[in-house]
Simulated scan of single mutants.
Amino acid sequence: MRILSQEEISPLLADHPEWTGGAEHLTRVFTAGDFAAAIAVVNKVAAIAEDMNHHPDIDLRWATLRFRVSTHSAGGVTDLDLELARRIEAVLAAESA
Rank of each mutant, 00 (worst) to 15 (best):
I58H: 01
M1Y: 01
V77F: 01
A14D: 14
G33Y: 04
A85V: 06
L4H: 02
L26M: 02
L80I: 08
P56W: 03
D15G: 07
T64C: 01
S10K: 14
R66I: 11
A94L: 10
G75N: 10
M1W: 05
A74K: 12
G21D: 00
P17N: 05
A40C: 07
H25V: 10
T71G: 08
E7I: 10
I58F: 00
D34M: 12
R2M: 13
W62H: 13
V41C: 04
G75Y: 12
A47V: 13
R86H: 14
R66A: 11
P56Y: 05
A32I: 08
T31S: 08
S96C: 00
S73Q: 15
L65K: 05
W62I: 14
I58V: 15
H72G: 03
G76R: 12
V77R: 04
E95K: 13
H72N: 03
L65D: 06
L26R: 00
H54D: 01
H72Q: 00
L12T: 03
E50Q: 13
D59Q: 14
V29Q: 13
H72S: 02
A94W: 03
T71S: 15
I39W: 12
L84P: 05
T27I: 14
V41N: 00
H54Y: 05
L26I: 04
P17A: 03
L80S: 08
N43K: 14
S70F: 06
D59E: 11
A74G: 11
I58S: 04
M1A: 15
I9M: 05
E89W: 03
F30Q: 10
Q6Y: 01
A97C: 06
